[in-house]
Design a binder for these strands. Structure first.
Lengths: 138, 138
DNA sequence: ATGTATGCAAAACATTTGCACCTGG
DNA sequence: CCAGGTGCAAATGTTTTGCATACAT
């Protein structure tokens, strides 16, 4: 049930917002660019403009509903915010994204920041490479 | 001595290339955007176009001479490649960049990748926040 | 000389914004 | 009904590219 989330953000429940949230919720690997979302909406015969996709994504991000990532390449990708923080592994070949979390890394980051008199407000850790096994869709 | 580096990359020794390399070598915090480099060249009365700055930076990056980073915000920043890998701490207020390296984090990354059948070709770790002490220039 | 580099202007992208019309509550 | 939302086209900001000229070797 996503309507509540949209309402809680102080936004009206509109078709574009519902559709975009639904797309992101059901996307295979949970990470999509604005263009990808736009194209998928088009093929679903939704009449939604690219500008609206960007506006909605920006609003959702401001509301904490989704998170914006800047992986390699030019365009940003978005994912539904999950309760728990995690980092990413991105396959340079297929674009596949896998999430991971490591307590030791998190702790080390804090320790390093403290040692430098730095107060962390956020961080980005991305591993680029390739999956040496199968499982590709993209 | 930088000429050798340019030559080794298979590029001719030209004024723009020398000047840009020199700027990056002597920059206070070693991290500059293409625009910053361009503006500083202008104020040094160098007659170099922005397009050339971008072209040279891209060539230097391809040659491994410099590294391109995508910190918060829109434009990429560049730094002279150092022998030893390091990650970054970026001050959201002043833009100040501090480098760090942590063996434990590096090892954990490898372990995590291995556990996922992932071969790392590169990674990006950036801490965003603020320095709680003094020392700001920007 | 001669293949590379460069400067300039125009193009290419990703993203944002202005504005008149539409729509949800 | 009416503030907020949307589509479209135009604007923006960053980076790239085409092309004629200039330079390094």
């Amino acid at each position: 049930m996503e309507e509540k989330d949209i309402k809680r953000a102080g936004l009206k429940i509109t078709q574009p917002r519902l559709k975009i949230l639904e797309l992101l919720s059901t996307a295979p690997d949970r990470h999509m660019s604005a263009e990808e979302i736009y194209r998928r909406l088009l093929s679903n015969d939704e009449d939604i403009g690219l500008a609206t996709v960007y506006r909605v994504l920006t609003q959702f991000e401001a509301a904490g509903l989704i998170t914006r990532h800047h992986f390699e390449g030019t365009q940003a990708v978005f994912e539904i915010s999950s309760e728990d923080h995690h980092d990413h592994m991105v396959c340079s070949k297929t674009g596949r994204v896998v999430e991971f979390f490591d307590e030791v890394i998190e702790q080390r980051q804090q320790a390093i920041a403290a040692a430098h008199g730095f107060k962390i407000s956020g961080h980005s850790l991305i591993l680029y490479g390739e999956f040496t096994q199968k499982a590709d869709e993209s």
